[in-house]
Protein backbone atom coordinates (compact mmCIF):
# COMPACT_ATOMS: atom_id res chain seq x y z
CA UNK A 1 0.00 0.00 0.00
CA UNK A 2 1.24 3.47 -0.89
CA UNK A 3 0.24 6.65 0.89
CA UNK A 4 0.98 10.19 -0.26
CA UNK A 5 1.02 12.90 2.41
CA UNK A 6 0.93 16.49 1.13
CA UNK A 7 2.87 18.87 3.37
CA UNK A 8 3.21 22.59 3.30
CA UNK A 9 5.60 25.00 4.97
CA UNK A 10 3.80 27.61 7.09
CA UNK A 11 4.84 30.25 9.60
CA UNK A 12 4.71 29.10 13.21
CA UNK A 13 1.35 29.72 14.90
CA UNK A 14 2.89 32.42 17.14
CA UNK A 15 4.49 34.36 14.24
CA UNK A 16 3.98 38.08 14.00
CA UNK A 17 1.93 38.73 10.87
CA UNK A 18 3.36 41.67 8.92
CA UNK A 19 3.87 42.56 5.26
CA UNK A 20 6.58 44.21 3.12
CA UNK A 21 6.97 45.56 -0.43
CA UNK A 22 4.01 47.90 -0.09
CA UNK A 23 1.90 45.15 1.53
CA UNK A 24 2.46 42.83 -1.42
CA UNK A 25 4.49 40.21 0.43
CA UNK A 26 4.45 38.39 3.76
CA UNK A 27 7.29 39.67 5.94
CA UNK A 28 9.45 36.61 6.61
CA UNK A 29 11.89 38.42 8.91
CA UNK A 30 12.29 36.46 12.13
CA UNK A 31 9.62 33.92 11.18
CA UNK A 32 10.01 30.32 12.35
CA UNK A 33 8.79 27.84 9.76
CA UNK A 34 6.89 24.71 10.64
CA UNK A 35 5.06 21.91 8.86
CA UNK A 36 1.46 23.05 8.51
CA UNK A 37 -0.07 21.57 11.71
CA UNK A 38 -3.00 19.90 9.91
CA UNK A 39 -0.55 18.18 7.55
CA UNK A 40 1.76 17.07 10.33
CA UNK A 41 -0.31 16.29 13.42
CA UNK A 42 -3.19 14.66 11.67
CA UNK A 43 -2.42 13.41 8.13
CA UNK A 44 1.22 12.44 8.53
CA UNK A 45 0.83 10.89 11.97
CA UNK A 46 -2.19 8.86 10.79
CA UNK A 47 -0.15 7.60 7.82
CA UNK A 48 2.63 6.60 10.23
CA UNK A 49 0.13 4.76 12.45
CA UNK A 50 -1.11 2.81 9.41
CA UNK A 51 2.49 1.90 8.59
CA UNK A 52 3.09 0.76 12.17
CA UNK A 53 0.19 -1.67 11.79
CA UNK A 54 1.29 -2.81 8.35
CA UNK A 55 5.03 -2.40 7.68
CA UNK A 56 4.50 -2.90 3.93
CA UNK A 57 2.91 0.55 3.79
CA UNK A 58 5.12 3.03 1.95
CA UNK A 59 4.74 6.73 2.81
CA UNK A 60 5.69 9.42 0.32
CA UNK A 61 5.74 13.08 1.21
CA UNK A 62 5.27 15.85 -1.29
CA UNK A 63 5.55 19.59 -1.11
CA UNK A 64 5.45 22.36 -3.67
CA UNK A 65 8.00 24.94 -2.61
CA UNK A 66 11.50 26.34 -2.85
CA UNK A 67 14.70 24.95 -1.29
CA UNK A 68 13.75 26.74 1.95
CA UNK A 69 11.04 24.10 2.41
CA UNK A 70 13.64 21.36 2.86
CA UNK A 71 14.09 21.65 6.66
CA UNK A 72 10.41 20.97 7.22
CA UNK A 73 10.49 18.03 4.80
CA UNK A 74 13.44 16.57 6.70
CA UNK A 75 11.43 16.95 9.88
CA UNK A 76 8.49 15.15 8.27
CA UNK A 77 10.87 12.37 7.19
CA UNK A 78 12.17 12.21 10.75
CA UNK A 79 8.64 11.65 11.99
CA UNK A 80 8.24 8.75 9.61
CA UNK A 81 7.96 9.25 5.84
CA UNK A 82 9.95 6.91 3.55
CA UNK A 83 10.75 9.28 0.69
CA UNK A 84 10.02 12.89 -0.12
CA UNK A 85 9.42 14.87 -3.28
CA UNK A 86 9.77 18.60 -3.62
CA UNK A 87 8.40 20.31 -6.67
CA UNK A 88 10.58 23.32 -7.08
CA UNK A 89 8.02 26.11 -7.47
CA UNK A 90 6.71 28.94 -5.37
CA UNK A 91 3.03 29.59 -5.81
CA UNK A 92 0.06 30.76 -3.81
CA UNK A 93 -2.46 29.50 -6.39
CA UNK A 94 -4.19 26.35 -5.18
CA UNK A 95 -4.95 25.07 -8.69
CA UNK A 96 -1.29 25.38 -9.70
CA UNK A 97 -0.17 23.51 -6.58
CA UNK A 98 -2.84 20.80 -6.86
CA UNK A 99 -2.07 20.25 -10.53
CA UNK A 100 1.66 19.79 -9.79
CA UNK A 101 0.90 17.23 -7.09
CA UNK A 102 -1.66 15.51 -9.33
CA UNK A 103 1.03 14.86 -11.96
CA UNK A 104 3.10 12.99 -9.39
CA UNK A 105 0.04 11.19 -7.99
CA UNK A 106 -0.96 9.91 -11.43
CA UNK A 107 2.49 8.35 -11.95
CA UNK A 108 2.50 6.51 -8.63
CA UNK A 109 -1.14 5.43 -8.17
CA UNK A 110 -1.40 5.94 -4.42
CA UNK A 111 -4.02 4.12 -2.34
CA UNK A 112 -4.51 7.03 0.03
CA UNK A 113 -3.70 10.71 -0.42
CA UNK A 114 -3.81 12.73 2.78
CA UNK A 115 -3.89 16.52 3.01
CA UNK A 116 -4.51 18.82 5.97
CA UNK A 117 -7.93 20.48 6.02
CA UNK A 118 -6.24 23.82 5.22
CA UNK A 119 -2.93 25.59 5.65
CA UNK A 120 -2.74 28.07 8.50
CA UNK A 121 -1.34 30.82 6.24
CA UNK A 122 -3.63 31.10 3.19
CA UNK A 123 -6.53 29.10 4.70
CA UNK A 124 -7.49 27.83 1.26
CA UNK A 125 -8.91 24.34 2.07
CA UNK A 126 -8.67 23.66 -1.64
CA UNK A 127 -5.82 21.26 -2.42
CA UNK A 128 -7.57 18.03 -1.38
CA UNK A 129 -10.71 18.61 -3.44
CA UNK A 130 -8.77 19.80 -6.48
CA UNK A 131 -6.32 16.93 -6.29
CA UNK A 132 -9.21 14.47 -6.12
CA UNK A 133 -10.81 16.08 -9.17
CA UNK A 134 -7.57 16.10 -11.16
CA UNK A 135 -6.88 12.43 -10.34
CA UNK A 136 -10.56 11.45 -10.63
CA UNK A 137 -10.75 10.01 -7.10
CA UNK A 138 -13.35 10.22 -4.34
CA UNK A 139 -12.67 12.95 -1.77
CA UNK A 140 -13.69 13.00 1.87
CA UNK A 141 -13.20 16.36 3.54
CA UNK A 142 -12.76 17.47 7.15
CA UNK A 143 -12.07 13.97 8.47
CA UNK A 144 -11.97 13.54 12.25
CA UNK A 145 -11.35 9.78 12.14
CA UNK A 146 -9.85 7.42 9.56
CA UNK A 147 -10.07 3.64 9.90
CA UNK A 148 -8.98 1.04 7.38
CA UNK A 149 -10.28 -2.52 6.93
CA UNK A 150 -8.65 -4.22 3.97
CA UNK A 151 -9.21 -1.83 1.10
CA UNK A 152 -12.24 -0.13 2.64
CA UNK A 153 -11.79 3.14 4.51
CA UNK A 154 -14.31 4.20 7.10
CA UNK A 155 -14.02 7.94 7.57
CA UNK A 156 -15.83 10.16 10.05
CA UNK A 157 -16.25 13.65 8.64
CA UNK A 158 -17.65 16.93 9.80
CA UNK A 159 -20.76 18.01 7.93
CA UNK A 160 -23.16 20.94 8.32
CA UNK A 161 -24.72 20.50 11.75
CA UNK A 162 -22.95 17.31 12.83
CA UNK A 163 -20.86 14.45 11.55
CA UNK A 164 -21.27 11.33 9.48
CA UNK A 165 -19.40 8.13 8.76
CA UNK A 166 -18.57 7.56 5.11
CA UNK A 167 -17.34 4.30 3.67
CA UNK A 168 -15.28 4.24 0.52
CA UNK A 169 -13.15 1.73 -1.33
CA UNK A 170 -9.56 2.89 -1.89
CA UNK A 171 -8.06 4.84 -3.55
CA UNK A 172 -9.29 8.02 -1.87
CA UNK A 173 -8.21 11.59 -1.09
CA UNK A 174 -8.86 12.69 2.50
CA UNK A 175 -8.43 16.08 4.18
CA UNK A 176 -7.66 15.68 7.87
CA UNK A 177 -8.32 17.73 10.98
CA UNK A 178 -8.25 17.30 14.73
CA UNK A 179 -9.26 13.84 15.88
CA UNK A 180 -7.59 11.82 13.11
CA UNK A 181 -4.36 11.43 15.12
CA UNK A 182 -2.32 13.08 17.86
CA UNK A 183 0.78 15.22 17.49
CA UNK A 184 4.13 13.42 17.85
CA UNK A 185 7.69 14.60 18.44
CA UNK A 186 10.40 13.09 16.20
CA UNK A 187 12.89 10.92 18.11
CA UNK A 188 16.68 10.86 17.67
CA UNK A 189 16.61 7.65 15.66
CA UNK A 190 14.10 9.18 13.28
CA UNK A 191 16.12 12.36 12.95
CA UNK A 192 19.30 10.37 12.11
CA UNK A 193 17.43 8.14 9.64
CA UNK A 194 15.88 11.17 7.93
CA UNK A 195 19.31 12.42 6.85
CA UNK A 196 19.74 9.55 4.42
CA UNK A 197 16.16 9.22 3.21
CA UNK A 198 15.66 10.29 -0.40
CA UNK A 199 14.47 13.85 -1.00
CA UNK A 200 13.90 14.19 -4.73
CA UNK A 201 13.60 17.57 -6.37
CA UNK A 202 11.56 17.92 -9.53
CA UNK A 203 11.04 20.98 -11.70
CA UNK A 204 7.37 22.00 -12.07
CA UNK A 205 5.24 21.41 -15.13
CA UNK A 206 4.52 24.53 -17.08
CA UNK A 207 1.12 25.70 -15.88
CA UNK A 208 -0.72 28.97 -15.48
CA UNK A 209 -1.76 30.17 -12.04
CA UNK A 210 -5.46 31.02 -12.05
CA UNK A 211 -5.17 33.49 -9.17
CA UNK A 212 -2.59 36.00 -7.95
CA UNK A 213 -2.24 37.86 -4.68
CA UNK A 214 -2.57 41.60 -5.27
CA UNK A 215 -2.02 42.82 -1.72
CA UNK A 216 -2.36 42.07 1.98
CA UNK A 217 -3.94 44.14 4.71
CA UNK A 218 -3.93 43.99 8.47
CA UNK A 219 -7.28 44.42 10.20
CA UNK A 220 -7.89 47.88 11.69
CA UNK A 221 -6.62 48.16 15.25
CA UNK A 222 -9.19 47.36 17.92
CA UNK A 223 -10.62 50.37 19.71
CA UNK A 224 -9.50 48.78 22.96
CA UNK A 225 -11.38 46.84 25.55
CA UNK A 226 -14.13 48.53 27.54
CA UNK A 227 -13.80 47.30 31.09
CA UNK A 228 -16.86 46.88 33.24
CA UNK A 229 -16.70 46.49 37.01
CA UNK A 230 -17.26 42.94 38.25
CA UNK A 231 -20.01 44.21 40.57
CA UNK A 232 -21.86 45.87 37.73
CA UNK A 233 -22.81 43.08 35.29
CA UNK A 234 -26.00 44.99 34.45
CA UNK A 235 -23.80 47.54 32.70
CA UNK A 236 -22.24 44.80 30.54
CA UNK A 237 -25.69 43.52 29.63
CA UNK A 238 -26.76 47.07 28.75
CA UNK A 239 -23.69 47.58 26.53
CA UNK A 240 -24.18 44.28 24.73
CA UNK A 241 -27.85 45.04 24.22
CA UNK A 242 -27.80 48.77 23.38
CA UNK A 243 -24.31 49.50 22.06
CA UNK A 244 -23.10 46.28 20.45
CA UNK A 245 -26.68 45.09 19.74
CA UNK A 246 -25.68 41.44 19.92
CA UNK A 247 -28.15 40.25 22.58
Amino acid sequence: MKILVCVSKTPDTTSKIAFTDGNAKFDEAGVQWIINPYDEWYSLVRAIELKEKDPSVEIHLITVGGADAEPIIRKALALGGDAAFRINADSSDSYYIAAQIAEKAKQESYDIIFTGKETIDYNGSSIGGMLAELTNLPFVSLATKFELTGSTASITREIEGGEEVAEVILPVVVSCQKGVAEQRIPNMRGIMAARTKPLNVKEPNNLDALTTIVSFELPPAKAGVKLVDADNVNELVRLLHEEAKVI
Binding site: Y95, K117, G129, A132, E133, F139, L142, E158, L210
Partner: peptide, 20 residues
Protein backbone atom coordinates in the same frame (compact mmCIF):
# COMPACT_ATOMS: atom_id res chain seq x y z
CA UNK B 1 -18.52 22.32 5.69
CA UNK B 2 -20.30 21.65 2.40
CA UNK B 3 -18.46 24.43 0.59
CA UNK B 4 -15.14 23.16 1.93
CA UNK B 5 -15.99 19.72 0.57
CA UNK B 6 -17.24 20.75 -2.84
CA UNK B 7 -16.20 24.25 -4.03
CA UNK B 8 -12.54 23.56 -4.83
CA UNK B 9 -13.42 20.39 -6.69
CA UNK B 10 -15.93 22.30 -8.82
CA UNK B 11 -13.29 24.97 -9.47
CA UNK B 12 -10.79 22.37 -10.66
CA UNK B 13 -13.41 20.81 -12.95
CA UNK B 14 -14.28 24.19 -14.43
CA UNK B 15 -10.61 25.20 -14.46
CA UNK B 16 -11.79 28.27 -12.59
CA UNK B 17 -9.70 30.29 -10.19
CA UNK B 18 -11.11 30.12 -6.67
CA UNK B 19 -11.05 32.33 -3.61
CA UNK B 20 -12.22 30.56 -0.48
Amino acid sequence: QTGKAVAARVAAKLKAGIVT
